[in-house]
Design a protein around this nucleic acid. Structure first.
Length: 280
RNA sequence: AAGAGUUGGUAUCACG
């Protein structure tokens, strides 16, 4: 079950549910009984490719095998509903698991907080934050990152910055996601001085930028038609050993087109192909 | 360097 499930898990992450289900069937055919992990992997895989009926089919098989959904199984289902924006169902699932005597863990809470955040309902996100604390579950850096992103999405980047200070005061270590989120927020608003300060604070914390950090900044530069700076950072990051990916190329190509640099945009396509990245 | 679930970057019709 161990090796099968790890293999299936990788296939699910590649959204290759065709192959994943083949392997799953192969496993059961060889007499190996799927456990809770195996089922949850399949359920999550199908949820992520929006084949909910397939996912429920596996959930049904799991129940028929006499297994109770685990906290992770519930979290998968909650997340699936969060993605389609159905927070009523997500909330009901959370209550249902509690009713069954399962205690939602940090991941479960983070998932539903993220769901409310994506709906723009920071009020509810904060309520869930209180709820988790009252159940004795402490927020972690993911929780903070989620709320910081919620603030950024609403344009409250200064408040997001305050939240960063607060989390540090409480003894948490901001990570590359924290900084990328805030840098992206400033960058999108054209507040590049603030974005730069954040970049410096990130270095002070010994957190290294990654491709996403750079993309967030480059995206802002492009939006503001500051193509020289976009280009400069694009060069510089490769000096750091960071390799541009598909999204970054798309960002730059779009930015160059928008600012009228059509030849250069076109040139990027050949460049990305040389990098082994297939344009989408 | 190993089996499951949560957070950050681009684009996309219509509506607004």
């Amino acid at each position: 079950v161990f090796v099968y499930t790890s293999f299936i898990s990788k296939l699910c992450k590649d959204s290759d549910m065709q192959k994943a289900s083949t392997i799953f069937n192969e496993m059961t055919a060889s007499g190996i009984l799927p456990d809770s992990f195996a089922y949850t992997t399949m359920i999550d895989g199908y949820c992520k490719v929006r084949k909910i009926s397939k996912a429920l089919q596996y959930l049904g098989r799991m129940l028929k095998d006499g297994m109770e959904p685990s906290v992770a199984t519930y979290t998968t289902l909650i997340n699936s509903n969060c993605r389609i924006g159905d927070m009523e169902v997500a909330q009901r699932l959370l209550e249902k698991m509690i009713g069954k005597g399962l205690l939602p863990d940090i991941v479960a809470y983070n998932t539903i907080i993220n769901g409310y955040k994506n709906k723009g309902d920071l009020q509810k996100a904060y309520e869930l934050l209180d709820m988790m604390k009252s159940f004795g579950v402490s927020p972690d850096i993911v929780t903070y990152n989620t709320i910081i992103h919620g603030l950024v999405m609403k344009g409250y980047v200064a408040e997001a910055n305050d939240m960063l200070d607060e989390l540090i005061r409480r003894g948490f270590s901001p990570d590359v996601v924290t900084f990328s989120t805030i840098i992206g927020g400033y960058s999108n608003k054209g507040q590049f001085a603030e974005a730069f300060l954040m970049w410096c604070q990130m270095s002070d914390c010994n957190v290294r930028p990654d491709v996403i950090t750079c993309s967030a900044l480059i995206s802002g530069f492009c939006r503001a038609h500051r193509i020289d700076e976009a280009r400069a950072l694009f060069q510089k990051m490769q000096g750091f050993g960071l390799n541009p990916d598909l999204i970054l190329y798309n960002t730059l190509i779009h930015g160059f087109c928008r600012s009228g640099y059509m030849e250069e945009a076109y040139h990027l396509i050949t460049l990305m192909i040389e990098d082994g990245i297939v344009p989408d």
